[in-house]
Design a protein around this nucleic acid. Structure first.
Lengths: 239, 239
DNA sequence: GCCCCGATGTAACTCATGTGAATCCCCCTC
DNA sequence: GAGGGGGATTCACATGAGTTACATCGGGGC
């Protein structure tokens, strides 16, 4: 269950047996979460962090008029609120997009890790910095990329991130979001998401049907998106 | 010189005498940097982090066609690339927007801090997480706020952040960006920045002249922006 | 088998923002 | 004080994306 998380870490750096044991011991409890549930609520005091074992979640920020923006999508193996360990409360909600399974990690255990296994502490610091890099790339998308390039970029990113945890291939992956949720990720309206999706299909780049993403022309898609995975920091790091 | 940085930290948490000493000792060298210089270049291997002592800098990401997006503005007291300590290379450039002074902090000394002063390590982890929160708020702006609300939000944020380090008041602050740079922060064209600026002036909310920002109606500005400073985490934290 | 309801698909029209110039205005320099 | 250059401003026009309104599809409940 926790293997996705370990895959994700080992993609980026060595994890010793000691460190792996500490990670396993850090999960105090696992829980099922139904789709739609608010897993972590904006502003509430936090005493543990949530490791996503199975399913998809999203960090969302709302505006008064009802507008909603997804700030980051979370896939199996991600900590959805590791930053909550130092921040102690979040500036956004975390909601389950699908039925999910999570592991709860008490902040006390994370704190011990920073005291007893400073290297593992740096690994987790690193992982929050990778989250931040993903968010910066989204800023670039929202600020400068056209709707179609933006959507292409999201597909490239998600598929690549799923590959790492053994849930996607170069030809596609599960993609359980509705067009409404997709629109909240991309800063577009549902109608325009629909148009853009059709344009991607018309250009024979991707197909999205039945919550399944099929990539027909990966090179073409990545070119359209100007996708460069460097910001995911997928190579090995000394930490 | 380093006082802005200490102010910024002490706004958020207690810093002991020991910790303060470690911070002061961490700066190996100070340097002057002219406006326009690329301080840290995307992708280059890093061996130290840069603390901004005086002046403004920006993290920028470029697209092939020449489009450029600022992902975060940096003010005196900020580390511009503390995340580089764990990432080892950046996914963006850092450029000086004004003549600046910086302190260089070798990664070795940061590493020692995580080993010998784990609490100070957590404080710095916390600070990178605050940077990430600022970036998330920008995602919300770019994805959902209108041009005028987006610009109002930026003014609210910058002024508040400058107040903390003693360089702004509730009535305004220095604002040395050109309209082009402003457009790169907001994901707008220069022309539309100009229009929007005039609309803000017409509504008697702010005035921007001679690189000086004057806030005429703070409550009105914050309402227009839906500005809630919670995401800056300005209260005291136990770390 | 039928009804609901959410998700998806389409079309027509509107509007915020982008494009591409031209002009103006300082401020600097020679 | 003539010339130059970057920034600011303005205008006319183009367009990508939003809005509104409806039609269709498809699965789940009864």
């Amino acid at each position: 269950m926790i293997t996705a998380h370990l895959h994700k870490l080992r993609q980026r750096t060595h994890v010793s047996a000691d460190e792996e044991q500490a990670i396993r011991n850090s999960v105090a409890e696992t829980r099922s979460v139904p789709a739609g549930r608010v897993m972590v609520r904006c502003g509430e005091p936090l005493s543990h962090s949530v490791m996503l074992l199975e399913g998809w979640m999203a960090r969302v920020k709302d505006l008064e008029g009802g507008a909603r923006q997804v700030t980051e999508l979370h896939l199996p193996g991600d900590f959805v609120d590791l930053h909550g360990f130092t921040l102690k409360r979040l500036d956004h909600d975390v909601v389950a997009l699908t039925d999910s399974t999570v592991g709860l990690v008490p902040h006390g255990r994370l704190r011990e890790i920073t005291e007893r296994l400073p290297r593992l502490g740096r690994i987790y610091w690193f992982m929050t910095n990778v989250d931040a890099a993903i968010t910066r790339e989204l800023v670039l998308s929202l600020g400068q990329r056209s709707a179609i390039s933006r959507m292409a970029h999201l597909f490239c990113e998600i598929c690549r991130r799923l590959e790492i945890v053994g849930r996607g291939t170069e030809h596609g992956c599960d993609f359980p979001l509705t067009q409404r949720e997709l629109s909240e990720c991309l800063g577009l309206t549902v109608v325009h998401v629909n148009r853009t999706l059709q344009e991607l299909r018309r250009r024979a780049l991707v197909e999205l049907e039945n919550r399944q993403l099929t990539i027909r022309d990966r090179a073409g898609l990545e070119a359209l998106a100007e996708f460069d995975p460097a910001y995911l920091y997928l190579d090995q790091h000394r930490l």
